[in-house]
Amino acid sequence: MSLAMSVRTDSIEFFVESPIFLSAVTSWFLAQMVKAVVLLLKTKKRNGRELLETIIWRTGGMPSSHASMVSAMTTSIAIIEGVRSNLFAVSFFMSLIVMRDAMGVRRSSGMQAKSLNNLGHSMEDRLGIEYHAVKEVQGHAPLEVVVGALLGIFIAAAYAFL
């Protein structure tokens, strides 16, 4: 094995074994699992494919996996690197942007898309004009973001202290 390949393999192993990486991925996955359970409890008509899509891909809902992942990452960086590090500062402000976007921009655009689709379908029914619906992106309510952030903080603390 060449030196470059060895360095690359060691770097990947270090990255994947990093508590920062592990806490971020674990918190994202657990938030998605909780979201799937909440979805299952709310609507009993869900099939296995929809649950799998929720776990892997779907956005919106309780708790916010975006908030969970970035808060776990930021908390892990704070614990490992310290709150005075440049990495923590960058992570902290990026986390704020992600969480604000989840509550604000994505939520607003999803609500606008829903209204536009309602209007478009109404025009289609009344006037016979063909309408192609736009994607309704789901954002988060503030409570969903707070719960996600708390989940991420607890998971990062668990990786650091347990």
Rank of each mutant, 00 (worst) to 15 (best):
V105Q: 06
L96F: 13
G139I: 04
F154E: 03
L151I: 03
M94Y: 09
I97G: 02
P142V: 07
A113L: 06
V134Q: 08
L96R: 04
I129W: 12
I97A: 11
E144G: 00
A156C: 06
N117E: 10
I129E: 14
F92N: 00
H140P: 06
Q112E: 15
G139P: 01
M99W: 08
K114N: 11
E136I: 06
L127Q: 12
M123E: 12
I97F: 10
V147I: 09
I155K: 02
G128F: 07
I97E: 05
S115P: 03
R100F: 15
R126G: 03
S95T: 01
G148S: 04
S109H: 12
G110Y: 00
S122R: 15
D125P: 01
M94L: 13
R126L: 14
E136A: 08
S108F: 14
S115I: 14
A157N: 09
G152R: 00
G104V: 08
A141W: 06
L116F: 15
G152W: 00
V90Y: 15
L119N: 13
E144K: 03
L96V: 09
A141V: 08
Y131S: 01
R106G: 03
V145L: 02
L150V: 05
A156Q: 05
M123D: 10
L96I: 09
R106H: 11
V98M: 03
H140V: 08
M111W: 10
P142R: 07
Y131C: 00
R100N: 12
S109K: 11
L127V: 08
S91N: 08
Y131I: 01
K114Q: 15
S108R: 14
I129N: 10
S95E: 01
R107A: 12
F154K: 02
G120T: 05
I153K: 01
G110K: 02
V90N: 07
A133T: 13
V145I: 04
N118K: 11
I129P: 05
R100Y: 13
A89V: 04
I153N: 01
V134H: 09
V90K: 11
R106L: 07
D101Y: 05
V147Q: 03
